[in-house]
C-alpha cells in the first residue's frame, strides 16, 4: 500500500478519537434530555479560548489551564441548561434546539467581541514522530490517547456507578424514573455537566492541534452532529463507530481530493445514509 495513504488512514484514526469524544458528550445530552445542543461546538470553542488565555496571558502551566478550561466548560454547559433549556423543557424539542442556536450566535459574537477574529494558537510545537517513513503528529497521538481514556471513563461511569445507571435508565423511560424516586431534573443537570465537561476535554485536545477563532465551532460542529445522527442520536456506541467512519472518509478522501471535497464527500455520504437508514447505522 502507498505509504502516504497509510499515513492518511492513521491520521484519520487519530482524528476519529477526538470526534468520538465530541459525539459522546452530545449524544449523552441528547439521549437523556432529548435536546440537541446546536451550540455544543461553541462550548468547545469557548473552552479552547480558556486554555489559550490562561496559558498564554497568565502563564499557567498547560495542564492546569486545561483543568480550568474543563471546569469552565462545565459551568458554561450548566448555564446553558439552567438558563436556556430548563424553562422550555416542556415545549417542542425543536424549540430547544433553536434556543441553543441562539446560544451559538451569542457565544460566537461574544468571542469576537472579547478576542477579535484573529486566529490564535498556543505556540507549542510538539514533535512529529516518524515510524518507518510515516509521519504522525505527536499532538494528535496524545489527543487520540486522551480521547480514548475519556471514552473509557464515561463508559465506566455509565456502567459501574449508581448515577451512571440512572443516566442510562432515564434515556430508556423518562416517566418511570420519577416512580423510582428520581428527580429527573437533577439527572438532567448532572448530564449537562458531564456532557459539557467532555466538550471541555475535547477543547484541550483540539487546541493542541488547531488555531482557535470565534468561528471554529462552525467548522467541526456540523461534523459532530453528523457523527451523532449517523450513529443514531443518543446511541453512544453507534456514535463512537460513526466517528471513525466519518474521519476515515475525510482523511482518505483528503488524500485523493482537496480537503473540502473530502468533507463534501463525508456530508453526502451522511445524507445518503440517513435517507436510507434514518435510525442510524446501528438502529433497529
Amino acid at each position: 500500500m502507498d505509504i502516504y495513504l497509510l499515513e492518511a488512514i492513521i491520521n484519520g484514526l487519530l482524528l476519529g478519537g477526538v470526534l468520538a469524544l465530541l459525539s459522546l458528550g452530545l449524544n449523552l445530552i441528547f439521549g437523556v434530555i432529548d435536546v440537541v445542543w446546536i451550540c455544543y461546538a461553541e462550548v468547545v470553542m469557548a473552552a479552547m479560548y480558556a486554555v489559550f488565555w490562561l496559558y498564554t496571558f497568565y502563564g499557567w502551566p498547560l495542564l492546569l489551564a486545561c483543568a480550568a478550561a474543563i471546569v469552565f466548560a462545565t459551568v458554561l454547559g450548566l448555564l446553558v441548561h439552567i438558563v436556556v433549556i430548563e424553562p422550555i423543557l416542556g415545549s417542542a424539542p425543536i424549540n430547544q434546539l433553536l434556543a441553543t442556536g441562539g446560544v451559538l450566535f451569542f457565544l460566537q459574537s461574544l468571542a469576537t467581541l472579547l478576542f477579535g477574529t484573529d486566529f490564535r494558537n498556543l505556540g507549542i510545537r510538539l514533535p512529529v514522530l516518524e515510524l518507518g517513513g510515516i509521519f504522525i503528529s505527536f499532538s494528535r497521538l496524545i489527543a487520540f490517547g486522551i480521547a480514548l481514556v475519556g471514552a473509557v471513563g464515561l463508559f465506566l461511569f455509565l456502567s459501574r456507578t449508581y448515577l451512571g445507571t440512572a443516566v442510562r435508565a432515564i434515556a430508556q423511560d423518562r416517566e418511570v424514573m420519577g416512580l423510582m424516586g428520581v428527580n429527573e431534573r437533577r439527572i438532567y443537570v448532572l448530564t449537562s455537566a458531564i456532557g459539557s465537561g467532555l466538550a471541555g476535554l475535547a477543547a484541550c485536545l483540539l487546541v493542541l492541534q488547531y488555531d482557535v477563532h470565534p468561528f471554529i465551532g462552525l467548522t467541526f460542529g456540523p461534523i459532530t452532529f453528523m457523527v451523532c445522527v449517523l450513529g443514531g442520536l443518543g446511541n453512544m456506541i453507534g456514535g463512537f463507530i460513526a466517528a471513525f467512519i466519518i474521519s476515515q472518509i475525510i482523511a482518505v478522501g483528503g488524500y485523493y481530493f482537496p480537503i473540502e471535497a473530502a468533507e463534501v464527500l463525508a456530508f453526502v455520504f451522511f445524507i445518503v445514509l440517513i435517507l436510507i437508514r434514518p435510525q442510524g447505522i446501528l438502529g433497529k
Binding site: 449508581y162 445507571t165 430508556q172 423510582m180
Partner: peptide, 16 residues
Amino acid sequence: FPRLTVEENLRMGAYL
C-alpha cells in the same frame, strides 16, 4: 428499563 439488567432494574428501584 429494557436495556438494563434485572439487577440494574432493582438498583433503580432502590434509588432513594
